[in-house]
Write a protein that binds this DNA or RNA. Structure first.
Lengths: 355, 355
DNA sequence: AAAGGCGATGTGAACGTTAACAATTGACCC
DNA sequence: GGGTCAATTGTTAACGTTCACATCGCCTTT
């Protein structure tokens, strides 16, 4: 007859064992102040004894909070996004949140909408979206956002809070480094033109050349893959006065070096090559690669910080919402955090060969 | 007075608009067969019109299913785990599940227990655990598992379902390849000795040498990092008869090549080096690296497949559980799926130099 | 010493869904 | 033409929390 042999214990069970009401158990669980110490201990003992675990669905139902944050990312097999994701997850978990992720297959408006829909179905409390393309950032800003959103490497202009690495600065660091070594100018292999990171790195490169009065070669562009770097490298091998190249990421830089090597152009003796990202491998490339390091984990942490702030604000403002101009938030400009990158000099860059 | 201005619609609202009971709405949502076509359409129109979205917490509360799968992984910034994670996420989402992840900081029993606890708190329906170390695999098997668990790259001996790449086979492929090229023997830089993948790759290497009657050098071992490979490479540079090295992953292989290069030992002219994993960069290493490709996404997909099967079984068996020998599942051996790797021959391996 | 207040606890009603069962309708069979 | 059965729909009661409010002592205040 006892069919409830293996039912997991609920609050009422704990309450019965501790000789209190279920509400007192709830109070203990939620750290309400008004519980006598002795009672609290009895309840905790009962919880321990039964191996009780609070049912998060029931809790979410009444509190309207799932304690879950959603993350939408693009290519999580790449070092950058993967590291950022790691930082996000760590920070979120430390703050007591669960993390639900969606990896986009393609960087399209539809896939993004689908991802947001998926996470909305799960009723996440907030979202971190890693939107590296300008068009997608705009699309995101236009979509209805039922919950607070923070973007990473997004467009600061579209009105969403954003955490960025200062990519422009990174591009400038590289270019300054090469010019200071004595190079007359610096060629550039950029990432895809519609990527924000790509644009900013190129901008930093261009501005620095401009400021130095150096000639500005036409940049080549790849798709972040080593293969595309290789192709650009083959083109660069044909450039007469080539002495220095700034490649927008380490993977492409690897391809560039490969192509130059095949064309009997030595790095750094004949040509200096600098990458971007400081992937763990870059120190052991042949030659070890000069590059720009970004603190991805820090980016992840900051994003969660921003999001939790937004959640807190949201809760504060949600009570007196009836009076406010409905939906139109106070004119606080969206938060923006910028993380500084730094140059890591290795052997792939050096002074130009005396000709 | 209308304070519910901005309450999001619930089933009752849809029901009212469609002129049916909330239960009929529920039936439409759950694809129950016994709803008249015309009614179904009216309900769907009402859902559409109100922008109604079912409350997953309420649903989870009564169905006791969260539709969420938990994933515990170790170093998700590495290419392998990141790719596996991607495959897992894709497959899970396609099956209508949410994915909640926890990245372990360290591969310890405590961290694992904490991760499982975290996910249990969220009441995931099932778990995928990527446990690459033997000791941890054992620890996992000993922990209470309130939900079905599938392990990836785990120990097939501990009684949990597992999806693996045939690492032994991979090690054998590499070694055969090198012997066939004419090398008298093959040196080996293994991964950490307590990693299962590491053990299996080494085993494949050793067995192949043994079968070929080749001498078996003492293997060196690293920690997967390029730096550790570099150190081993420095040691290998001092080995007199060295002509071929099998390195247990591409990153370490990169370090080995770097160290050999610095010792003026040319790859592949003087020494052949073969890696493992086929990371996207390896094709563009200097020289392009011969390596073993694993289909990580496939591993992820298979793991989800296995897990969903286990969930289905669980549901089937849970009804008549009262009669069965309580908890002791029928003696079906835990499922085991093995994915085959394949060799990718590139320029880093070639016939030994004629001396 | 009575009034007021505060700390500690309990009671009942949500939250929004699905499950179990009841009720109604119409078709079909003999 | 009455009865049976299936298809369709509705009614009520869970699920396990938290919230709002009530209650009961006891201490403080005047």
């Amino acid at each position: 007859m006892a069919r409830n042999v293996h039912r997991s214990p609920v609050m009422a069970d704990v309450a019965r064992l501790a000789g209190v009401s279920h509400q007192t158990v709830s109070r203990v669980l939620n750290d309400h102040p008004n519980v006598r110490q002795e009672t609290r201990e009895r309840v905790l003992a009962a919880i321990e004894g039964l191996g009780y675990r609070r049912n998060s669905s029931a809790r979410a139902l009444v509190t309207r909070q799932t304690n879950t944050l959603g993350v939408v990312a693009f290519d999580t097999t790449l070092y950058g996004p993967a590291s950022t994701l790691y930082g996000l997850e760590r920070a979120a978990r430390e703050a007591g949140y669960f993390v639900s992720i969606v990896s986009l297959r393609e960087l399209t408006r539809d896939d993004l909408a689908e991802a947001l829909d998926h996470l909305a179905r799960q009723q996440v409390d907030g979202l971190v979206v890693i939107v590296p393309q300008s068009a997608i950032a705009v699309a995101l800003a236009e979509m209805p956002q039922p919950v607070p959103v923070v973007t990473v490497e997004g467009d600061a202009g579209v009105g969403l809070p954003v955490v960025n690495v200062d990519q422009r600065k990174g591009g400038a660091l590289v270019t300054e480094h090469l010019l200071r070594l004595g190079h007359r100018t610096v060629w550039h292999v950029s990432g895809p033109p519609d990527w924000l990171e790509s644009q900013a790195r190129t901008q930093g490169w261009r501005e620095t050349l401009l400021a130095a009065g150096a000639p500005i070669p036409e940049p080549l562009s790849g798709d972040w893959s080593p293969r595309s770097g290789y192709r650009c490298g083959q083109l660069l091998a044909g450039v007469p006065d080539l002495t220095a190249v700034f490649v927008a990421n380490d993977q492409m830089a690897l391809g560039v070096v490969r192509a130059l090597d095949e064309a009997r152009i030595r790095v750094p003796d004949d040509v200096s090559v600098v990458g971007f990202d400081d992937v763990p491998e870059s120190e052991f490339f042949t030659p070890p690669m000069t590059t720009v390091a970004q603190d991805f984990s820090e980016v992840g942490r900051k994003a969660i910080e921003l999001l939790l702030d937004a959640l807190a604000d949201d809760r504060d403002h949600s009570a007196p919402t009836a009076e406010g101009a409905d939906g139109a938030y106070p004119a606080v400009p969206p938060a923006r955090i910028v993380v500084q990158p730094h140059l890591v000099v290795r052997r792939s860059s050096g002074p130009p060969r005396r000709s």
